[in-house]
Amino acid sequence: MKRRDFFKSAAVVGLASVFKTNALGSVVSSNSLAVQSQPDLVAVMGGEPGVMLTRALKELGGIGHFVKKGQKVVIKPNIGWDRKPELAANTNPELVATLVKLCKSAGASEVVVFDNSCQDWKKCYSNSGIEKAVTDAGGKMVPANNESYYREVELPRGISLKKTKIHGALLDCDVWFNMPVLKHHGGAKNSISMKNLMGIVWDRGFFHSHDLHQSIADIATFHKSPALNIVDAYRIMKSNGPQGKSEADVVTLKSLIVSPDFVAADTAAMKLFSQVQPTDIKDVRHIGLAEKLRVGTQNLDKLNVKRIKL
């Protein structure tokens, strides 16, 4: 390798890691030597939520690969609705609890969980089953119901959303995990990992009045991206999302999709979802828009995808 080439690639890798986009993923994946062992996306099917998560993390190098001793960790599940776990409006509590325990076992000093809920936040926290599951597992639920918890950040790559207020707990942590549930959604067509980011910001109204899909894609360019997107598809909501009316809206797929790449995770989740409720991924416009902003890739063939059936 010429010295010039070395500097070039070092600069590319350096820049990519500064922005922490998944450009890094694609740069690295083109280098066939380094990657073989590290998949870009892991999909698991057929187990209980905790079992599937533990297995997926094992494929990705174990929790210690993401969480170091003494670090502050944030987990952002979907706790948007005052609904019981069986209705799949919120992330599976067992899944959240398992991640809390894993982070703790990796030596995390603190594991904090929050969501800017859409309904009475206290009832959302408790009736989703997440509050109890997290507290029992040694994590901490923090409120997100007041603007004073949020601080403004710039989104220089954003097109519609140039700046927004994000929860301080997330801004101050060392590492965070995005943990959405796979759902149909009346407004955004589907709610997966990027849509879940609307729960880390204060002013969701701006998204709705300024091109919802573009704003969702814009928030995905936030420089502090999650270590992993962990898409809960144990139970999915196939219709009447994001709240659902009854258990008739719920389908149990016993699946889990994990990837650091927002776009790849959402693309894979859409393909899984479409088997239940055929949906054109182009209608979920924010996925394509995020790809345009180089947040990630829809082309799963280019990625190292690991599929596991338990």
Binding site: K189, G205, S209, L212
Partner: peptide, 10 residues
């Protein structure tokens, strides 16, 4: 542009 906030909350 898409919105759907009302339906989402209904």
């Amino acid at each position: 542009k898409d919105c759907g906030a009302c339906s989402e909350h209904c």
